[in-house]
Design a protein around this nucleic acid. Structure first.
Lengths: 85, 85
DNA sequence: GGCGATTTGTACGTATGTATT
DNA sequence: CAATACATACGTACAAATCGC
């Protein structure tokens, strides 16, 4: 599973913080892109998989990916998946 | 109640259509702004009230207002309400 | 400044529809 | 046609901001 490897250094999104969880998830994914761990064209895990891996709800992942789409960091294709821009 | 008056000519959002409900709700509100029925500075009903009045879920209203914010037609203030721009 | 009421924001979970493979 | 994956829609609960008292 593509995301499991990343789960090792995945932040604990359950910790209390003034920053919303969906922003922290987006920032975390952004940092993985910026660091080169996720290269352009790479496909992200399915949203539901991301949700369960991150221990957050599907809705939260949807918000996070919406943010990243606004930031033009990812591209999402209905029925296919989400890719690094 | 501010919105009840508008309920008379409110479209039936339950009818089947290829256009998502949240887009139709947004378009309906936009048409009420463009027609002058809702003037600049006017406050919209609370989102939950809009939801029940329109017979749709809170989530659907949130999507609709998000669209209208993107279109710069409304301004939303946390804890206060939503206003025509 | 506190308190309660109102209103938006976030988060969770689930079901069904639609597009791609 | 079946499996996979994103999109929409519903409902609920609690947190956070604002305002009037």
């Amino acid at each position: 599973m593509a995301c499991r490897a990343a789960a090792d250094d995945m932040p604990d999104f359950s910790v209390d913080s003034p920053t919303p969880v969906y922003v922290r998830v987006a920032d975390w994914i952004e940092s993985r892109i910026k660091s080169g761990e996720l290269k352009s064209g790479a496909r992200l895990p399915p949203e539901r998989e991301l949700a369960s891996d991150c221990g957050v709800a599907y809705d939260t992942i949807r918000r996070a990916t919406a943010l990243l789409r606004e930031r033009s960091l990812i591209i999402t294709v209905h029925g296919r998946g989400t890719y690094v821009a």
